[in-house]
Amino acid sequence: MPVNTQAGEPRTPPFNAEAARRLREALGMTPAHVAYGIWAAYGIQISPSTVASWELAESTPTEAELTALAGALWCAPGELLGAPGTLREYRLALGLAPDDLALRIGMDQSAYERLEAGGKWSGNDRQAAALAEALDLPTPALIRFTGQDKKLTELLTSAAATRWQAYVRPVGKLVPLPKQHIQDVLQELHTDYQASMTATLNWGGGEGTDDSGKAGRAFLDDILAEFWERVGRQRP
């Protein structure tokens, strides 16, 4: 079933203005040198003032300009970007064109471009694995981009509130982690959720039950973030 691709909406790339300036200065180049290099190698005409504007974070380069700037500065596009957050940003960081990435994961280019623009993931497990490999995606990002975060949240909520043992296998089907690792994290979530409920009930007063409900809902509202944090903490 097609599912929404979370965090796939296009936005301005997280351009690292300071990195662009630092790399240029390390090469002994002026903004004029960079502008000329971009025009000579990529045929994109920009002014030295535009390069300076990028470095002052007053404006940001387009995707084509970013690729050309990286070429002029002899660096990878990822060195000019902050931490990627969207599918498009992960692709830009590696300097991949949409058609190249679509070919690598075995997906029609137009289908991939719709996905990157915030469309729906309808690929299979093989394509998801290929996407993760091509973009070197961390597991949380892969889960988001393939629209599985909602399902994972539901499983984690049930695991914390009921018998966590019953959810080890379903969670393992979504998250490629060792079984023991998943068991440990689910048990932690269950224990902490139950403890939060019990603690508020012991506060005393007539509103104890209501307070425990609020504490429990607050814990469950953040359960996906808690899961990833604990997964990272338990990694060797």
Rank of each mutant, 00 (worst) to 15 (best):
A17H: 11
Q127V: 05
D136E: 15
V185A: 03
Q165D: 14
V171D: 00
G205C: 09
L66N: 05
F15T: 02
E65D: 13
P170K: 03
S59E: 11
A32V: 12
K150P: 03
I38C: 04
T139W: 13
A215K: 02
K120Q: 08
L186V: 02
E79C: 10
L189D: 02
G123A: 10
A166M: 07
A40K: 14
R163P: 02
W54V: 04
A128P: 00
E188V: 14
V51R: 11
V168I: 09
A93I: 01
E207Y: 13
P138G: 13
L103E: 08
Q180V: 08
E65N: 14
A129P: 09
K179T: 11
T60P: 01
V168E: 08
I223V: 11
T60V: 12
P138D: 13
D211I: 12
Q127E: 06
W121T: 05
T157G: 10
G119T: 03
E65V: 12
G85P: 01
G204K: 03
W54E: 04
P178Q: 14
T30K: 12
R104A: 15
G213T: 12
F219Q: 02
P10L: 10
G123Y: 02
R91H: 07
E133K: 15
S122V: 00
V175D: 15
P61N: 12
H33L: 06
P170F: 03
I223E: 07
T198A: 15
E188H: 10
I46E: 10
I105A: 12
W228F: 12
G8I: 01
H33S: 02
G147D: 01
G82A: 03
L103V: 08
S212V: 04
I105R: 00
H190M: 03
A134H: 07
Q6A: 12
Q127G: 08
G85L: 00
Q165N: 03
T12W: 01
Q127I: 08
A132L: 03
V3Y: 06
E79R: 13
R114L: 10
L137N: 14
L156V: 00
G213S: 06
L220P: 09
L177N: 07
L27K: 07
G208R: 14
A225Y: 08
K150L: 04
Q148M: 10
G37Q: 02
A70S: 15
D210C: 07
R91N: 10
A160C: 09
A159P: 05
H190A: 09
Q45R: 15
R22L: 04
A83C: 04
T153E: 04
W203T: 13
G28T: 01
P138L: 15
L131M: 04
G213H: 03
L66P: 05
A195P: 01
A166T: 10
